[in-house]
Design a binder for these strands. Structure first.
Length: 353
DNA sequence: AACTCGGGGAG
DNA sequence: CTCCCAGAGTT
């Protein structure tokens, strides 16, 4: 079959398939732009099963964009705790304030209007305007890259500039413009349930024999992705310092992992340090002059991102009183209101209770 | 164009 | 272990 014909048959077969195979999610039975926007931000690089509880929590805590705009950033980050990619929460909150303050609470009405908002890129803008307003903009996410690369035999790397452009053009050619929302939903559903990364269910695929990868046994080699960078290890020493007043916390600032979240005072080094080496560190001296250090757990190691691995050790600091003004001393009850990385959250559960 | 940003699940 | 997930911002 020629590529012209498959460009005609693809949307038809896809939409016919979707009528009996659509997935039902909490954010699908609405055209409320706020709920659709929120769901699209949560689902970036995040599986539906992981994101759904956070979507329900966010809607309960912040039912409207006005509620979200009015909230403190710490409260938004706390609701986001454990989901990862925390810039999504900060950008979401920032955009909510922009919508309420600058747009008088009115959501953007077209693709370019949404694209201006922090945290809304080409994918989210297309998804929101197609789902909420049925405007003709094709989504291009990981599912779409995979479905199109296989179906049309495209070897252009999906993480190259050329690839982004080429797949977007093709997706918009295929898009059923009068039914953009359903088309976008259908192609992502197909990628998620049939055209899976490994062991796809080709026998149940509506594209069937028209799929280039199926015809040519290229399923496992498409889509093509460029190589990733080298992994850099990082060594974290967390100081669990406490006095009768409570525990010592600091807020992470700067453009780094877990920005805006709270943690025990941290000493980062290029390798693990001994308690003796740590005891002469200025951060320890600032906490208390009569501090003794004790290791309470040997090691926690986790590759958190494709390019970096965090290795962490935890230490207890016994301080009669805490001298420093540098860090925040939070009472037990207040800790519950602060967003912390998962590695810290595990410790709080073990030691503060 | 390359790098940075989480956490969880599947194989 | 490796790879992927309803990507986007920064440098």
């Amino acid at each position: 079959m020629s590529s012209h014909n498959i460009k005609i048959s693809f949307p038809k077969n896809l939409l016919r398939w979707s009528k009996k195979n659509d997935r039902n999610f909490p954010w699908k039975q609405t055209t409320d732009p706020y709920k659709i926007w929120l769901s699209e931000i949560i689902l970036q690089q995040t599986r539906v099963e992981q994101g759904t509880p956070y979507y329900l929590k966010m809607i309960a805590l912040f039912p409207t964009v006005e509620h979200l705009a009015k909230a403190k950033e710490d409260a938004v980050l706390k609701a986001w705790q454990g989901l990862g990619y925390y810039s999504r929460a900060r950008n979401l909150h920032s955009a909510a304030k922009y919508i309420v303050d600058e747009l008088k609470g009115k959501f953007p009405v077209d693709y370019n209007g949404w694209l201006i908002l922090k945290g809304v890129g080409p994918y989210a803008a297309a998804a929101i305007v197609s789902f909420a307003y049925n405007l003709p903009h094709a989504v291009v996410d990981g599912n779409v890259y995979r479905v199109l690369a296989r179906c049309f035999g495209i070897e252009t790397p999906i993480d190259s500039t050329e690839g982004k452009k080429r797949f977007s053009i093709l997706a918009n050619e295929l898009l059923k413009k009068k039914d953009a929302g359903r088309f976008n939903q259908a192609i992502m559903d197909l990628g998620a349930t049939i055209c899976k990364p490994s062991s796809p269910l080709c026998n149940a695929c509506p594209i069937g024999k028209n799929c280039f990868a199926k015809k040519n046994s290229l399923i496992s080699s498409l889509p093509v992705k460029n190589k990733k960078v080298k992994i850099k290890p990082r060594f974290f020493h967390y100081m669990i310092a406490h006095s009768e007043k409570g525990f010592l916390f600091e807020k992470r600032t700067g453009n780094d992992i877990w920005k805006g979240l709270y943690q025990f005072p941290l000493i980062e080094a290029t390798k693990f340090l001994t308690p003796l080496q740590l005891s002469s560190h200025q951060i320890i001296k600032n906490i208390s002059s009569s501090t003794k250090i004790k290791i309470i757990e040997s090691l926690m190691s986790k590759q958190l991102l494709s390019h970096q691995k965090i290795e962490a050790k935890f230490f207890i600091l016994h301080a009669k009183k805490i001298n420093t003004e540098k860090y925040i001393v939070e009472k037990k009850k207040h800790i519950k209101n602060l967003a912390v990385p998962k590695i810290i959250d595990q410790y709080i559960k073990n030691f503060i209770h």
